[in-house]
């Protein structure tokens, strides 16, 4: 049932494809972090139209499957707009947009947790809104939410196989291609499963350690 020499033979191919998976994960996470904070800031805006519009968009993106959003971006966008994006770029944009809506809530919780006195002090010192945000609020809002953001990094990693639907040759699609050449299915999919399992367990172990260190710094 399990053929070790076959497993060893396909392992380098799969590890190569893992690099694509990791690349998409990191790029998607960075994009989601940037868009997430923009959404969080926009939802505190004075303009009701912007606030309500963003809330509607966030709600819609969170209520529909990433897979369908990817299909929409990859197959419809080139028909509406005169652009054509690679599978990797589309995948990163899809992941980034989808998880930005989740991360915006995380940022919001971090911002809400900054004591009100900090805002009042910034006003009393006559700091500009930009300085208030970048020197006072965000430096206090972001460190406590880093562990939660780390969890979303793991979630994004686990969602990258969906990108194979728009022909991105990442780990799962490579396993599928390997299986269709050799007609041996068990090893490629099992190795793929184990690779995902190992990386996400390692990441969550790392996050737990990071959280402990952050807690120590905050209490000290």
């Amino acid at each position: 049932m399990w053929n070790w020499s076959y497993a060893a033979e396909i392992l380098p191919t799969l590890l190569n494809a893992l690099l694509v998976t990791i690349g998409a994960t990191l790029a998607g996470f960075v994009l989601a972090s940037i868009l997430g904070i923009l959404i969080a800031l926009g939802r505190r805006s004075r303009f009701a139209v912007l606030r309500l519009g963003l809330q509607g968009i966030v709600n819609f993106i969170r209520s529909t499957p990433l897979l369908v959003q990817l299909f929409f971006l990859y197959y419809s966008l080139p028909m509406i707009l005169p652009i054509s994006l690679s599978a990797f770029t589309t995948g990163v944009i899809g992941l980034g947009l989808h998880y930005a809506t989740y991360l915006s809530e995380v940022y919001r919780s971090g911002i809400d947790a900054v004591p009100k006195g900090q805002w009042e002090a910034a006003t009393a010192l006559d700091l500009s809104p930009v300085r208030t945000w970048f020197s006072i609020i965000l430096p206090q809002a972001v460190p406590p939410i880093i562990p939660i953001m780390g969890n979303y990094l793991i979630v994004i990693l686990k969602e990258t196989p969906t990108l194979s639907a728009i022909t991105l040759v990442e780990l799962l699609l490579t396993a599928k291609n390997t299986a269709s050449v050799s007609y041996r299915v068990f090893e490629p999919y099992t190795i793929t499963g184990i690779l995902f399992l190992v990386i996400s367990l390692l990441l969550s172990f790392g996050m737990a350690r990071l959280e402990k260190r952050l807690n120590r710094r905050h209490t000290a």
């Binding site: 969602e159 799962l172 999919y189 793929t192 499963g193 399992l197 996400s200």
Partner: peptide
């Protein structure tokens, strides 16, 4: 929780 759903489905 550590396993990717799509990979699990394929498996």
């Amino acid at each position: 929780r550590a396993c990717s759903l799509l990979v699990l489905l394929f498996w």
